[in-house]
Structures are given as C-alpha cells and as structure tokens.
C-alpha cells in the first residue's frame, strides 16, 4: 500500500487533478481531508486481501432484504 496521504500531499494531488476535473484556481480547495483518500485506499487494500470470487457486491439495497 502506498504511504498515506497527508493534508499537504492530498492538496498537491488536488492541484494535479484540477485540469482534468475542470477546476480552476477559484474552485481549488484550501484543504482536502486526507482521511477520505486514505479511507478509500484502505477499502481497496481490504478488498484486495479477499479472494476476488468472494468479494462482496456493493451495498445498493439500503433497506435490508429481510424488511418490507
């Protein structure tokens, strides 16, 4: 797993992605919650540790299947 993002590296990533996302200076954030990016990376790593054929489908049914 790559090193976790810090607030600074997360912000740098935002600057790099800005042209791709259509963001100009006025849209750019002053801070990005590095936790969001790190959380996403942790989710990836967790799923990668499960045999692919056993990985879960996304939660799309928000009302559990046992309820009306």
């Amino acid at each position: 797993m790559p090193p976790p993002y810090t607030d600074e590296t997360a912000l740098e990533l935002a600057r790099q992605l800005a042209p791709l996302l259509g963001l100009s200076d006025i849209h750019l954030p002053t801070a990005i919650a590095a936790d969001v990016l790190n959380g996403a990376a942790e989710c990836d790593a967790l799923l990668a540790g499960i045999p692919q054929e056993r990985t879960p489908a996304p939660l799309t049914q928000l009302v559990p299947e046992w309820l009306p």
């Binding site: 935002a14 992605l17 963001l23 954030p29 990005i32 919650a33």
Partner: peptide, 13 residues
C-alpha cells in the same frame, strides 16, 4: 470554504 473542500474531495475520488 469548508463545504467546497468537501465537494472537491468527493470529486477527486
């Protein structure tokens, strides 16, 4: 600024 930061974080994912 705080709200904008939240929106951008989601946009980056």
């Amino acid at each position: 600024q705080d709200y904008r930061n939240k929106v951008v974080a989601g946009l980056m994912l």
